[in-house]
Design a protein around this nucleic acid. Structure first.
Lengths: 225, 225
DNA sequence: TGCGTCATGTTGACGATGGCAACTTTATAT
DNA sequence: ATATAAAGTTGCCATCGTCAACATGACGCA
């Protein structure tokens, strides 16, 4: 029985690291600001200000772990949203909707995941989150290929570049829209689902994009919700 | 003659504020990291660590000013790239290319401009940069409308939503692609121009997106350059 | 000319932060 | 049972953002 782990503190702490990451997600969700202190996380977890250093070499590594957790929940959410859907196009839309919602509901986390807060002086991101990000990407790519152009472009190796281009286009579009919404640069956020559907529909059908009904002039400017 | 402003220090300092912002842009370009200190900027400008507070209430306000400067140079760069071009489509491509290049060449600055580093606990961004961002958006919107669908969709008020949708789609696509490239999530960066052209072409023509020639498998994964 | 005022820059201090080193406590393996 | 490694603690340091008080120069007005 390696982990009794009841609500008391069985031995030293039980499972710090997870506690720290969860505290970070909590505070991120509460304050919607990236400027929290390592020490505050330690306080929340009920440990001393240096305990986290036994699990993370750096603050950057801690942030990377939080980002990885964000990717993980994103992947799970997208996967959950498409179970039971047969139509490939429906699956694509449901997934992208989940993607956008995840970002819009949690702007600070999304900003942490993609805002480049991690790529300091060196080039590469920490490997921990890299792996998680790849899983997310893989799920995205699969559903995009199936739903976006499964019939239009046969999946033979000749068309690889075309397929890669479609994935990139779709991802870029959704990524950009999510950030614009999360930043409040376009809005209102409540319509994000409809906006996303319209845009993806548009990119799939060619540029016959028509926005859903919105009060004219509100889609751009101060954040709406 | 209100400002002799030679390379000596005529009186107090001459033109701090600009010096501070430029120092920030410098250090941003050098280190590609957002984690610089107000004090270091002051050091670079040759003033004491509290001098900046006479020009910026806050560090956040300082960052906002830097972001605004980023928007300004972006706008100028895009405008410069399209002078002399008649064909509306050419103008669109040149402008978007400039947009993407600006982001890719200066990831930290782009991240500051769009990464949500500013929206702390409160909602709205500082007004200083808001104005500058609006100018950028206006230029973008104009050229997109002219080049993207000037002929396809007549610019009567009936089609307003359609037009807004096209702008949003185009901006989202380019914004997302720029961030993906800047973050090194897709690459290589050197091909960013071609990638952008392809994607925009694709969104304009419908989803017949074909990427330019790249070594297969390199377009996604560790950053290429 | 002299003087007051305001903008600008300086000095010094405070609390908090990220990170290091040294020490203590618990779990596990031999 | 005892050594060893893992996990947590205390104390410390340089630095950071910010505040308050003070100094210095420029400019308007007598």
């Amino acid at each position: 029985m390696p982990k009794p782990q009841s609500h008391e503190r069985p031995y030293h702490h039980g499972d710090l690291r997870r506690a720290i990451v969860m505290a970070a997600l909590e505070i991120l969700h509460e304050t919607q600001s990236l400027e929290f202190s390592l020490r505050e996380l330690a306080r929340r977890a009920g440990v001393s200000h240096n305990a986290p250093y036994k699990h993370f070499a750096d603050k950057r590594e801690l942030l990377a772990a939080v980002s990885a957790a964000g990717f993980e929940t994103l992947t799970k959410r997208m996967a959950r949203e498409i179970v039971g859907l047969d139509n490939a196009r429906e699956r694509l839309f449901a997934m992208l909707r989940a993607y956008i919602d995840h970002g819009v509901e949690n702007p600070a986390l999304y900003s942490l995941m993609f805002g480049g807060h991690l790529s300091g002086p060196e080039r590469s991101r920490p490997a921990i989150e890299r792996a998680e990000a790849e899983k997310t990407k893989a799920l995205l790519a699969g559903v995009i290929v199936a739903g976006g152009l499964g019939r239009a472009i046969p999946h033979i190796s000749r068309n690889e570049r075309k397929i890669a281009g479609a994935i990139l286009a779709c991802w870029s579009l959704v990524h950009g829209l999510t950030l614009l919404l999360a930043d409040g640069l376009v809005g209102p956020k409540k319509k994000s689902g409809a906006l996303g559907d319209s845009l993806v529909q548009g990119i799939l059908d060619g540029l016959a994009v028509e926005l859903p009904a919105l009060p004219p002039g509100t889609w751009i400017g101060p954040q709406g919700s």
